[in-house]
Amino acid sequence: MNGYQSFFRDPSTRVYREGATFGDILALYEFDVELREIMLDALLKVEAKIRSALAYEFCAAYGESRSKYLDARCYATSKGAKRVLPKLLNMLDYIANKDTSHEYLAYYRRAYKNVPLWVAVNAMTFGQISKMLTALRDNEKAKIAKRFGVGNPKELSSFIRVLALYRNVCAHGERLFSHRCHVEIPDTALHAKLGIEKIGPDYACGKVDVFSAVITLRYLLRDDEFKTFKAKLVKCVNGYLSLDESIGEERLLEAMGFTAEWKK
């Protein structure tokens, strides 16, 4: 409960606000648990798609031999790629040649003397998938971005990197609703369309908060998938606000980075 108490205390005195109860803290905690479940379900759909797309495009370009995805020459030479490549190749080498915790990897080693990337990706975390996407050459990135309907490959890389971080928050049971990410998503057409306020040149929300993840999901999920996700999200937020008024809608939406018009 420690992560939720602060929302019911005076920030200057750390004394609980008048009328605050343990039930208020519990209600906020339970809201966050439900929010994590809804977000994680949507994030796993994106994760599955990006695994498949990444493996397909890499193998289409370089073949299925593990020697290819372990070869630094099959990756970009940009600063971002060089930054992640050493650890990425070490991780891929471990999966391809040493990992004994996944039976399907051992099977492919024994039966085919090879662990193709479309098998290896299943043993990779979302964060590792994100790093591999960063390391790919522009041609493969562009083809993957096109699969998601995203015109800019760099935009897709930023989207996936942010979602990987939020996936960790959800999977590890950390407080989600007020989380702020250390990586921001790029400005999108949705930021402008929603009329999000700007503070100087920067949007006031939808960049490093939970709303940034929701905007990203709007781009990366199919329309029907996002419609289902949004319905669950609206029900979750409305349900909490109708159950407990201790925080209030304005303060809750501010903590989540949601605009007043977020449902649009």
Rank of each mutant, 00 (worst) to 15 (best):
A213I: 04
A142Y: 03
H102R: 15
L190W: 12
R14M: 11
N168M: 05
Y108P: 01
Y112E: 12
V237N: 03
E47D: 14
Y203F: 14
L233S: 09
P186W: 10
A96Y: 00
E254D: 14
D138E: 15
P11D: 04
M91K: 15
R83C: 09
H179S: 02
R167T: 03
G173H: 09
M39F: 15
V214C: 06
E37Y: 07
C74E: 10
F58K: 10
L220T: 03
Q128D: 13
D10F: 12
Y112R: 14
D10Y: 08
I215A: 00
T134L: 12
A53D: 05
D24S: 11
V119A: 06
R66Q: 14
V208R: 15
A135L: 11
C74V: 07
S130D: 09
K263E: 15
V183R: 11
S246W: 12
H172F: 11
R218D: 01
T77S: 13
A72N: 02
G206P: 10
C181I: 03
K143H: 12
T259I: 04
F31I: 09
I50F: 01
R51W: 13
N97M: 10
F159E: 11
Y108G: 01
A61L: 10
A145F: 04
R66H: 13
N97Y: 11
A72T: 06
Q5D: 09
I25A: 13
Y29Q: 15
G248H: 03
M132K: 00
A204M: 09
G80V: 05
G173K: 11
T134Y: 00
A204R: 12
D224C: 01
K198P: 04
V183D: 04
Y4D: 13
L117I: 02
G151W: 10
T188P: 01
L241M: 11
Q128L: 09
L241R: 04
S52I: 02
L156P: 06
A111S: 12
L88K: 11
G195D: 07
L233C: 07
K141H: 05
G195Y: 03
I196Y: 08
Y219C: 00
A120T: 06
Y94E: 13
G257Q: 05
E34C: 08
D138I: 15
K207F: 00
R110A: 13
A27C: 11
P11T: 04
G173V: 09
R110K: 14
R51V: 07
A231Q: 07
R218H: 13
L26S: 14
Y107C: 06
K207P: 00
A123C: 11
R251S: 12
W118P: 01
Y69T: 01
S67L: 11
I129C: 06
L241G: 07
V115A: 10
T188D: 03
G127Q: 07
E18A: 14
K49D: 07
M1Q: 07
K230S: 06
L117C: 04
K235L: 08
G206S: 05
A204I: 08
L252F: 13
K232R: 12
K79I: 09
G149R: 11
A189P: 00
F31E: 07
E64T: 05
M256L: 08
A164P: 01
H102V: 12
E64W: 00
L92T: 05
A255T: 02
G3P: 00
D99G: 07
L92G: 03
A260L: 06
I160Q: 04
E250I: 08
